[in-house]
């Protein structure tokens, strides 16, 4: 364990993350402000479409914030997996010439995603205050849910980044999966619009759906219309455990595949 947090690794990680951030807003006038402005604008558009025009919120109180939190969490998942996917290939120059821990590259791109998530959550917090949302003590479960999403995204990132070295199709396939996932996950609409309980149950076995719904429940509102995996399965613990098991399985698979492939990155890129 000690070798993973050695001085060298920490120094390298901090420089890689810095470089990522500097390069991302290279040549833009507003620079870092974009990491806050981008989600704000995206949210404004979605707000107009789904809250004012389509009214997909049903009877959920504070639906705009409910919507915002869902979008922020999904964006984090999508940003992290997409950035990590190309990270190993993108850093091919380093991998071919230098002996640095390979996982470090995926890890550093995941940290940049975590930083954007942090900034976005600040916006969420501001909206919570402005809308006078009654945040209860249960919100302390939110960090655990964030960790769950991070672990899921990390497992997938490790797998994707290693597979992308061999198969460049992965980026297109992942794009399609993410598009489908975006609509299969109750981000833009309330779960109550799905009247079939079996379908609700199946949709909530997806760890992202489970985590987003739980995050909304602990942060925004405990209204009965917020359908979560706990509520829909009501005591059937075997089913409730499925999303969490999936997260662990993804992590283990990701780590194992990455470890196996990492030895040959230098020659395969």
């Amino acid at each position: 364990m000690k070798q993973y947090i050695s001085k060298q690794n920490r120094a390298l990680l901090s420089e890689l993350v810095r470089t990522d951030f500097k390069l991302r807003y290279q040549g833009s006038v507003l620079g870092y402000a974009w990491s806050l402005l981008r989600p704000l604008f995206m949210f404004s558009i979605l707000y107009v479409v789904f809250v004012i025009v389509l009214k997909t919120g049903g009877d959920i109180p504070h639906f705009p914030i409910y919507l915002l939190l869902g979008i922020v969490l999904w964006n984090f998942f999508s940003e992290m997996t997409n950035q990590s996917l190309g990270s190993i290939v993108g850093r091919g120059d380093l991998i071919r010439k230098i002996r640095i821990p390979r996982w470090m590259i995926v890890f550093s791109s995941s940290i940049s995603a975590v930083i954007s998530l942090g900034l976005n959550l600040v916006i969420v917090a501001i909206f919570l205050v402005f809308n006078k949302v009654d945040v209860t003590g249960i919100v302390f479960l939110l960090p655990l849910l964030l960790i769950e999403i991070y672990v899921l995204a990390l497992g997938i990132s490790l797998f994707l980044s290693a597979a992308y070295v061999k198969y460049r199709d992965i980026s297109y396939i992942w794009e399609v999966i993410m598009q489908a996932g975006f609509y299969l996950t109750p981000i833009l609409y309330s779960m109550t619009f799905i009247t079939n309980v079996t379908v609700q149950k199946i949709l909530l076995l997806n760890p992202m759906a489970q985590a987003i719904q739980d995050a909304r429940l602990v942060t925004v509102t405990q209204d009965k219309n917020v359908v979560t995996v706990f509520r829909v399965f009501d005591g059937e613990w075997l089913y409730i455990a499925i999303p969490f098991i999936l997260v662990l399985v993804m992590l283990i698979l990701g780590v194992m595949y990455f470890k196996k492939e990492a030895k040959y990155f230098a020659e395969n890129i």
Partner: peptide, 21 residues
């Protein structure tokens, strides 16, 4: 990295050698 300044590259390259800031 061609897009970074000489100064920033010194720190990045140093980190690859295991030196912190």
């Amino acid at each position: 990295n061609p897009e970074l300044s000489g100064r920033e590259n010194v720190f990045l390259n140093g980190a690859l050698l295991g030196f912190n800031r």
